[in-house]
Design a protein around this nucleic acid. Structure first.
Lengths: 264, 264
DNA sequence: CGCTACATTGATGATTGTCAACAAGTGTGG
DNA sequence: CCACACTTGTTGACAATCATCAATGTAGCG
């Protein structure tokens, strides 16, 4: 009966190796020049079932991450963009658990996991960064769980816009004008809502003067108003964390005296 | 991802990453007994804001973990029990993010985080276990997100019972008869439902013959029926992972020839 | 230009939350 | 041992939110 559908998670044949080489720009693995990989619009960086071997750090572009549950339904679990780390989900089983699909022409740094581990062993600073990378992923999950279970649709959509805005701000882009890369349906999936509900609420926010929305173009007009809708305050954002790779794709090597764990 | 590693991993079945050490000899790191801590009913093991310094591994007893969002509302994020690891949430900021409260007289092993890190540095097996510990927490979050956003109340409660049953089974206890330690309200908070909804659904399940419920005593009568409600199958459970501490509270030290990380 | 995917908006209904009453169990102190 | 307060659980009636179904509009793309 449901046995066949249960395999959905692993059903996807491993075609990663092909797609990996197909669109890769391979550069020598020099400390100065990290390997990069380019992904075109609609292509997957990796898919559920692919063997895990490397992490990726987004250099440019926008993605969606899709988790498919055992019964076959697919859900959007995040919208990774520049500086975000991808691939952590594969560490548990040795195989990736979700699909990462590019919204536009994107480029990622390829960060072999063995290198990360070596780096963590050799370097106290590296170990700390690795640790925080994991921990951040965990708290991100907790935050989203809270959002999904304890809020209403209006709050979710408002929070979604504010979070997106904040992420753009942290990347040095405008926090008040940006384009959504995803469809209403994808937003809905991410927030646990139907696409119509998302659309209605965006229209509603516009009527109330909180935002201006034209298709995927968003202008944030009233931050305090939106925050009030959420019931939270701007300082509920988690602090920015140090990037795991610098702009050239190098692992920062820091000679630090402070060797203790969990320094704030 | 690099071609060579992808090939090597693809050849092996699931969990190849960790099966290598399954038959290795496990010896205690320290002969001395590990520090334990006892918590009475209603007491907190640690609270949000407490400085992070150690992890805990549950030896006996039942807990709830509470996350409080910035606006003050509290939500149950999990029900830790024997063999579960507590405290990972504090690694990110150096301060714990949630409260851990005991339901009954409980005892935990105290596992100083510095020791974990040292252990991970010295021992490839240890590093792998640490890694999986984090990764498991991440996937647990993903799973729960999916549950919270993409399912209806009936499925959530059924899934909750099945998960609890499975956890007891893995601990060697009965999977078909067990006592809930938490209130309906706490179940509801965990599942994103109101306590009345939980109560109603438990009654409903009983009327349908799926379970027998008498206050907090649960008898699972019809596993296939419950699974059908969830739309999933029993194999959607994630595989058990190796405990991070043995029964005496020792970190397993493995004398393994295979000294490199499994993922290359 | 027409096709297709995406977005908006309305009407309607199901699921679930809210409010309320009551029952059952638990612990305390007289 | 019983009375009492208090917490927890059950069940009903009703309302609100959100999903579903449907129709229409709009933008992108060959």
């Amino acid at each position: 009966m449901s046995g066949s559908s249960a395999k959905a998670l692993r059903a996807r044949p491993v075609a990663a190796a092909d797609s990996a080489t197909a669109s890769s720009i391979v550069t020598p693995l020099k400390p100065a020049n990290r390997t990069r990989r380019r992904v075109r619009r609609g292509e997957t960086l990796f898919g559920a079932g692919d063997p895990f071997g490397t992490l990726f750090v987004v250099r440019a572009g926008h993605f969606k991450s899709l988790a498919s549950s055992a019964n076959g339904q697919v859900q959007v679990t995040g919208f990774p963009m520049a500086a975000d780390v991808l691939g952590l989900d594969g560490i548990d089983t040795g195989f990736h658990q979700c699909d990462i699909v590019a919204f536009d022409i994107a480029e990622v740094f390829v960060l072999p996991f063995a290198e990360c581990e070596q780096w963590a062993r050799d370097n106290a600073h590296g170990q700390r960064l690795m640790r925080r990378m994991f921990a951040r992923e965990i708290t991100r999950g907790h935050d989203h769980m809270l959002l999904l279970s304890a809020t209403r649709a209006e709050q979710r959509v408002a929070m979604f816009l504010l979070e997106l805005s904040e992420r753009y701000r942290r990347l040095g882009e405008s926090r008040s004008r940006f384009a959504l890369r995803m469809t209403r349906q994808e937003i809905g999936s991410y927030l646990g809502l139907q696409l119509e509900t998302v659309s209605r609420l965006l229209s509603h926010f516009q009527r109330e003067g909180f935002i201006q929305v034209q298709g995927r173009e968003i202008s944030m007009l009233d931050f305090p108003g939106l925050w009030q809708l959420t019931g939270h305050t701007p300082d509920s954002f988690r602090p920015m964390i140090e990037p795991i790779l610098d702009a050239q794709g190098n692992l920062p090597l820091v000679a630090d005296a402070d060797n203790g764990p969990a320094h704030r």
